[in-house]
């Protein structure tokens, strides 16, 4: 995961754009942006599995929803909890769940992996759906956002909309940096090796199953982090948060953005959110348009939005470079966002 200069520039531009947004956008769109940033974190966590490890999980919402439920369980009705304790509990729960589920799942591959992750997510879904103590299918409310205190000094007030916005933005940037650090490390090379050719990676002496499991746990924990943010933000968690629709939606987001790029899924989250928003304004049957849109993306945009950028840049580089001239391959000099060296 090396970053070319134009890409770093564009990413910084994006972050500054988001940072400036609350001053320009209406309250509704600021809230939407928070939601989409959370979705972006969730999508990035899944991209680590799909785009870098080559494991297609169709049950990733399980960790997302589980963290939300943990927050709901540990938050009493009368008083808020400390964020340090809440975060620790949520992340530990999703990491443990990922360890248990992943331990079985990484033994399978391909379609079986897709199906077994789906099955485990459904198992959790039914567990919460049928649990009357946790509100069964109606879900459960979280009455207080966690407090961010050091000692008795209040560091952040998450009830403030702007504070929460920047808290989410900082989380997004942190998760991005964390994941790209992981991917730059030897660990990242090994999991990419597993995606390219697992047998050869194994032949090089790596315990590929263990690497896949670690990748699954990291991914699940970060999905849990996104779930924690979502539950904190909306103050509500229901079984739908871990249902297969949610898993399908996030899978869709990652592919729409472009797998294996990290920033692509965030773009995908924003594209999905805006699309959903405008479709909902157009008609009650917006899911129909969504379906058509999904199919169009698969048929005409197989590499996602990030891939579209790469294709556009390639076309441009063809225009600027006289044909037949030049000894270096065109792509080598014009580093394009979305293209891995």
């Amino acid at each position: 995961m090396t970053h070319s200069k134009p890409l770093v520039f564009l990413l910084l531009l994006g972050v500054f754009g988001l940072a400036a947004f609350p001053f320009a956008g209406s309250e509704f769109y600021t809230e939407l942006a928070v939601r989409l940033m959370i979705l972006g974190i969730f999508a990035m966590s899944l991209d680590l599995l799909i785009g870098y490890t080559g494991l297609v999980s169709f049950g990733h919402a399980a960790f997302f929803g589980l963290a939300g439920y943990v927050l709901a369980i540990i938050t009493p009705e009368s008083a808020p909890v400390s964020i340090w304790f809440a975060l620790l509990a949520c992340l530990a729960a999703s990491a443990l769940a990922a360890l248990a589920i992943g331990w079985i799942c990484v033994r399978t591959s391909g379609v079986y992996f897709i199906m077994i992750t789906l099955a485990f997510a459904q198992m959790l879904y039914y567990f919460f759906n049928e649990n009357t103590a946790l509100g069964s299918s109606d879900g459960i409310f979280i009455y207080h956002k966690p407090t961010v205190n050091i000692g008795s000094f209040q560091l952040l007030d998450l009830d403030n909309a702007h504070t929460f916005y920047y808290f989410t933005l900082a989380s997004l940037v942190l998760v991005y940096l964390l994941l790209s650090t992981f991917l730059k490390a030897p660990f990242g090379r090994v999991i990419r090796g597993i995606k390219a050719n697992e047998a050869r990676t194994m032949a090089l002496g790596f315990n590929t199953r263990r690497y896949k499991l670690v990748s699954f746990i990291i991914s699940g924990t970060l999905a849990g982090f996104a779930g924690f943010l979502e539950a904190t933000f909306s103050g509500f968690v229901s079984p739908a948060h871990l249902g297969w629709h949610e898993s399908g939606l996030i899978l869709m987001t990652v592919i729409l953005g472009g797998i294996g790029t990290l920033y692509g899924p965030v773009l995908g989250a924003f594209a999905m959110g805006l699309m959903e928003d405008s479709f909902q304004d157009m008609t009650d049957h917006w899911l129909l348009l969504m379906g058509v849109f999904v199919i169009a993306v698969v048929l005409f945009l197989p590499n996602g939005i990030a891939g579209l950028g790469a294709r556009g840049a390639k076309l441009l580089s063809g225009v600027f470079r006289p044909s037949g001239g030049g000894t270096n391959p065109p792509a080598a000099k014009n580093k394009i966002p979305g293209e891995e060296p």
Partner: peptide
Amino acid sequence: FLYHRDHLHQVLLTYGLILIFNEMQKI
């Protein structure tokens, strides 16, 4: 169109079909 594509794309396209069919049923 999907025979030579990745499973990922098949899952996605048929997911899109579900959305369309469910909504058609509602209409």
